[in-house]
Amino acid sequence: MLTEYVSQAMAQAVYDKLEDGTFTGRIPSCKGVVAFGSTLRACEDELRSTLEDWILVGLKLGHSLPVIAGVDLNREPTREPMDSM
């Protein structure tokens, strides 16, 4: 589920080439997820890392995360009773 969320969010990424030849990337639906890199690939890698950290912090702090492509990380986990194992 988490892998799908990251993949779908990265598919929404928007990149721009800056005047100095470096790149910036952002994911509009994930406020604050922004990255910079000397190449487009470096920017994409940094953006993925920033997104993953943003998700983990959001989950830990109980923030409401955007639903992306039908993937909702806000649902409470279901727990099975121990005797059913």
Score class of each variant (00 low, 15 high):
T78K: 14
S84R: 04
P77S: 10
M82T: 15
D20K: 01
L59T: 09
A69H: 06
G21C: 05
S64W: 01
V57C: 12
S29R: 15
K60F: 12
R41E: 12
P66D: 11
M85P: 01
P81F: 08
R26Y: 02
L65W: 08
S64T: 14
H63L: 13
V6A: 04
S84K: 02
E19S: 00
G25I: 01
P77L: 15
I55C: 03
I27C: 05
K31H: 13
G32K: 06
V67C: 07
A11V: 07
L59I: 11
C43S: 06
S64C: 04
C30A: 11
D83M: 07
R26P: 00
T50M: 10
V33F: 07
M82Q: 12
L2G: 12
S49I: 06
A11C: 08
Y15A: 05
L47W: 03
E46Y: 02
E52S: 13
C43I: 06
R48S: 05
D16Y: 04
P66H: 07
P81I: 03
N74L: 10
G21P: 00
S29W: 07
E52I: 15
L65D: 12
T39I: 02
R75A: 15
M10H: 05
E46W: 01
R26L: 04
D72Y: 07
L40G: 07
M10T: 06
E76Y: 09
Y5V: 06
D45A: 13
P28Y: 13
V33S: 04
L2K: 14
P66F: 06
K17D: 01
N74T: 08
D16M: 05
E76P: 00
W54V: 11
T78C: 13
V33Y: 02
C30G: 02
T3W: 03
S84G: 02
G25Q: 04
M1E: 11
T39Y: 00
Q12C: 10
A13H: 09
E76V: 10
Q8F: 05
L47P: 00
M85D: 04
M82R: 09
V67P: 07
V67Q: 07
R79E: 14
S64Q: 11
G58W: 08
L18C: 09
F36Y: 14
A13L: 07
